[in-house]
Design a protein around this nucleic acid. Sequence first.
DNA 1: TATTGTTATACTCTATAACTATA
DNA 2: TATAGTTATAGAGTATAACAATA
Lengths: 164, 164
Amino acid sequence: MPRPAAAARTTHSNTAPPAAVEDIDTSFLESLLGYNARRAALAVIDRFLAGMEPYQLKPVEFSVLSLVAHNPGITSRQLCSTLGILPPNLVGMVNMLEKRELIARRPHPTDGRAMGLHLTPAGQKLVRDAEKTAATIEAGFASRLTPAELRTLIALLKKVYKAA
Amino acid sequence: MPRPAAAARTTHSNTAPPAAVEDIDTSFLESLLGYNARRAALAVIDRFLAGMEPYQLKPVEFSVLSLVAHNPGITSRQLCSTLGILPPNLVGMVNMLEKRELIARRPHPTDGRAMGLHLTPAGQKLVRDAEKTAATIEAGFASRLTPAELRTLIALLKKVYKAA
DNA sequence: TATTGTTATACTCTATAACTATA
DNA sequence: TATAGTTATAGAGTATAACAATA
């Protein structure tokens, strides 16, 4: 974001070390997959965060609810290994979602230690609406990417993190 | 990561609600750009973190050193806006890199408030080696992605986060 | 008046150790 | 003995407010 050409006093002084930097060279970083993946993820998540504001859901909370919706009876342990979060960090989230009466813990049918997670009717409605919003956000990126590019991008991303 | 087919007792009970989940359906989440971008970024950064261990550099510290290397005299403010980090959070990092004698603060040639950042000889050597390692890590992904796919992926990621 | 660098501080996210009850 | 869920806690990472020196 530095202005294009102010203070032209410090131009082409090829030998003097104490020169000011005007245009920042980011070419090396931009050649790295990690740098670009992180920047893109942050940009998309930022948009997602804004879109989920009416539902008071952060990205991970949305992921949890969506997984419970499509996998009624899923356990905490399964959520953790699927989403890559640690059990102690899930507990508070599940408590909060239960207090909001979006999900309910029920005893697991075969494992007395585990609890199966289920959506309440209110949770089902919220997830339906939130997933619709997520799809809309997704479509919003079609302004920068064609549908084909979006498909390609997602396919390549999967190739990167699957079989890690 | 649940085992494929243990406890076959709880199979095809199509009507009973309290059933155990065996294979987790993640298809909706996997259709979302944000989910895939985050997972991919985490996977790559994980690999990067391991590769940078001998240099004792975290991804952001590597980014800072690399930017200083290619832009000698760059200011803290410029680093912050380029990398999307906040000034208070950069201070400690620069202090630490200075204490490790990898960078040096010198007075800015035209702005008395600012400090220009420069690499020490030790810093230059470290960055050269670390960038070589970064390129190697990058090449390591060629096992999952062809060089053409990697180029396409990076180009599409740029499209996503530029013009955000 | 605005900006650079800085301190202090708070809030979130992520990680580790240890306990309980079931398997 | 191992695993699911939980508690407590520690450590990163990220955020805002406010100040001194300079523009």
